[in-house]
Design a protein around this nucleic acid. Structure first.
Ligand SMILES: [Zn+2]
Ligand SMILES: [Zn+2]
Ligand SMILES: [Zn+2]
Ligand SMILES: [Zn+2]
Lengths: 383, 383
DNA sequence: ATGGACATGTCCAT
DNA sequence: ATGGACATGTCCAT
């Protein structure tokens, strides 16, 4: 164990003997790093490690060499102990992207501003984000990590914590997590005080069980305005496509704001940004009044508008869950009932009431074909 | 023990044999009542007790008879198991009052509105309140209890809880208490879910150590606007002068609001009240839209300006409703109900049934926002 | 759902 | 400290 680490430390030039990296060692190194926040057991600080492995860490190397060199993936794990990176990384073989698709239904629960690369979303409301990437290496086990950070350079290191008010409502693995992902097998990582990438709160979603057109079903459980929490600071979402070794294969970032009036706030935000870069921010310990308050992402803002709005096409899939198979029904034209209800409890009551309507009719008419609808209703009620 | 209680229960007429009351028995009864929220050990409900002791509970009897009759104070402990009373009680021998004195210094930390009988104060800022009373019985051990309640009749039973955000900062005996009193030997009483007088959170200050001109040094540790806490409901402060047996010798009430801008809010409040009694409140589970939202104290609002400075009539004590609906209308996630039905006729019936579900809920909860869903349903039903 | 009014905390210049 | 502007949640009528 120590031996393998020693061999790592001895690396000091780009003439790396790549054969020496087998995935076993990498895994080991990776876990070594993450289980021990300060690397004390290795008696080496993370900076030293970064210095020694730094040449592997260039953004230019995310591609895999193993096909050419017939070796395992080039390790690129220094980011684990660094601050999150807010630059998109999509110009490699994986062509990773995350896309929002406007949904016809209750579209008001979120709105996206292309000019700001920012999504405005209500609290506890689903935001579906669709992964898009080329499966460049079919053997890689893929994950998408979703993480929240403060947008401003000064606040980036600061952990983004859920406010005590909203914390109170939840227990369990995501009690401290603002960002929830309701896809099955999502894993909640990090801790509330984590500063570097691997320690920050995030949700890790295995792609293994995600259908090709299935979105990440995200939910924000705290508002940007919450005092004792995000406290009106501006925030960003970072998605990273990762393999089983935590190599980063792609990255997609966007600003977000969890608020009560997405439309109003989006319009005001676009308006304000259009005119002049204002102050009146409590972000960062920046200069009194002149500071331009620039986001890390905005470094490339020249191309940002494009980046956003083109990220285009692709088919919206949105298979409606719970869609019924078409039953060839007798003479009567089958009809769909589709309504909006205030909450799940009332939806449940509504379903029960409809159940009674159908059951009553079936009883009165003796039309046992209606049983099909009861069964379908029961499925929804059971959920 | 049981015997002494039995003797109490046997009282059934005002011809009370006052000699039978010694302070020992009263103390015992009092502690019996308070240690056992439901009086289970006595196998008697508090209502029965009130019925039996009710004749002692008249507001007209707070005076002591012991000088005349040479017996201990007339017991008056039924209030312990009732909702707090919001009427001033100063027209007796004790002439109890609590007074604010404008301080030259940092006067901005609070402001008092005479016309509203309301003090506007900043969070975590000292509010000195000066007790004034005639020491009618020099042998009595005196206390002043300070308690916070919701002003509106509907919300009065609801415990006033500190929001989780502000709770987080404190530990110890006043962790849950919004109202702090920094005088030495202040004792924190009650519990967060207490509904009746003796169980509600309060601070009890022994007068023994208070110099004659010394004020109660109060501090509010949570704002009226705090969600998860007072949640913008209007609130009142109740001071009661009590003896060592918890008899109430005097009472002084005032509205208060803990806010960031006392001056602005005071002016706006006075302005608004001057014109017309408005709605736009989240207080009480009141009727849909017409409810006048009246404070207990405001029942006499016609004379309130006077009342403040005099001390009025009489008024009923609100009884404890078994439950009070929680109006807390946080943002519920809207949901869509989508089902397939055999034909239009049944769809119509289904819509009717759902309509009834929502209408019923709206009626029960008084949540008029649900009307939107009824309207939408009606559109579909009309088709 | 939606837009307007409002309530109320925060920032900022003086 | 103070008043004005602003940010942002909530209520309400449609
Ligand atoms: Zn929150
Ligand atoms: Zn940006
Ligand atoms: Zn609070
Ligand atoms: Zn009043």
């Amino acid at each position: 164990m120590v031996e393998s680490q020693d061999s790592l430390y001895s690396l000091s030039s780009p003439d790396l003997d790549l054969d020496r990296f087998d995935t076993g060692e990498l895994n080991l190194l990776s876990s070594q790093l993450s289980q021990n926040g300060e690397l004390k057991s290795l008696e080496i600080d993370s900076q030293t490690l970064v210095n020694n492995l730094g040449f592997l860490a260039q953004e230019e190397y995310p591609q895999y060499f193993h096909e050419i060199l017939e070796i395992p993936p080039l390790p690129n794990l220094d980011h684990l102990r660094q601050l999150p990176n807010l630059e998109d990384m999509s110009e490699n073989n994986w062509k990773f992207d995350m896309q929002l698709k406007s949904e016809s239904g209750n579209k008001s629960s979120w709105l996206y501003s292309g000019s700001l690369n920012k999504v405005f979303v209500k609290i506890n409301t689903p935001l579906n984000v669709y992964p898009a990437f080329v499966r460049y290496d079919v053997n890689a086990e893929l994950f998408i990590r979703a993480m929240i950070v403060y947008s401003s350079q000064n606040d980036l290191p600061e952990p983004v914590k859920k406010c005590p008010n909203h914390k109170e409502k939840y227990t369990g693995c995501f009690a401290d997590h603002i960002l929830r992902c309701d896809n099955t097998e999502s894993v909640y990582r990090g801790n509330e005080n984590g500063k570097v990438f691997e320690e920050k709160l995030a949700v890790l979603v295995p792609m293994k069980n995600i259908a090709s057109n299935e979105p990440l079903k995200l939910t924000f459980t705290c508002q940007n305005s919450c005092s004792g929490g995000m406290n009106r600071k501006s925030t960003s979402l970072i998605f990273t496509l990762e393999d089983q070794y935590q190599n980063i294969l792609g990255r997609k970032c966007m600003h977000f704001k969890v608020c009560s009036c997405p439309r109003r706030d989006k319009e005001k935000d676009e308006q304000t940004t259009k005119t002049l870069p204002k102050k009146r921010k409590i972000e960062g310990s920046n200069a009194p009044s002149t500071s331009k308050k620039q986001h890390l992402m905005q470094k490339q803002d020249s191309t940002e508008t494009l980046m956003m709005d083109q990220s285009p096409v692709e088919s919206p899939i949105a298979t409606i869950p719970g869609t019924f198979m078409n039953i060839k029904q007798e003479q009567d034209a089958q009809v769909e009932l589709k309504i909006l209800l205030p909450n799940d409890a009332l939806k449940k009551k509504a379903l029960d009431a409809v159940y009674n309507v159908i059951a009553g009719e079936m009883s009165r008419s003796g039309n046992s074909a209606l049983n099909y609808y009861l069964t379908e209703l029961q499925k929804q009620i059971g959920k």
